[in-house]
Design a protein around this nucleic acid. Sequence first.
DNA 1: GCGGCAA
Length: 284
Amino acid sequence: MEGNSSGGGGGGGGNDVELLCKTLQVEHKLFYFDLKENPRGRYLKISEKTSATRSTIIVPFNGISWFLDLFNYYVNSDDQDVFSKELQLDTKVFYFDVGENRRGRFLKVSEASVSRNRSTIIVPAGSARDEGWAAFRNILAEINEASRLFISPNQTSETSERLGLSDDVGAGFISSHSSQSAPTADLSVERTIDLPAADEVGNLGVSKVIRVDQKRFFFDLGNNNRGHFLRISEVAGSDRSSIILPLSGLKQFYEMVGHFVEISKDRLKGITGANVRTIDSPQR
DNA sequence: GCGGCAA
């Protein structure tokens, strides 16, 4: 809206289609949520407007549910043990930081991308029980629900998701290998002993490795006739075993890992590297 | 009717 350019991805003129619009007022700020679509795909534009200023972040479509998760995290965590978080989606990184000043607590959500300048919105926690954040979370939940209705056949909404967890460089991500009608892969995680033969697997060119103690874990995106998957291989010596995770289950997997990170917090303290992407919040 | 951040 409002005129020209912007549009998150350049390329076209700004006639992106609005699929869904919502507004939220928190204290004296007004937040606009616009789910939009253009030929390059869908995105959620979140704008913060105060009397004098307006700033906007663009959330890739497949990042909406992770925004929802993160807001849930900040709503549900106790004040003193919230951490800063970062979330990498496609080529962008979103930073979540809690701050506090005489006006109260706030959550700063900051978008950094290679091309554009950083942009930030600041969401007040609200006066009681984080109701500002909770209201924001509720809007995200509504949009996340509604957006299921908008899945179109040639949109592989999950292939470009990425968790900001590996600690090596965030090289360019995949170029959404145009796959028509990705079949609905089943949700279960299958164990396999042998890897699929290389020629029956379309490797999408993403391969990452992390090292934990003596082990290495390889992360590879692939697809076969059943759909897209993430293969996680554990390699120790000459032994290798893998799990094949359909991308439709990636979010569940992520949440499950997050759960165990949460409940293991105390044990993780003092382990070098355990908090690589979890920065202590700069508040007391 | 606030006003925070700008890696």
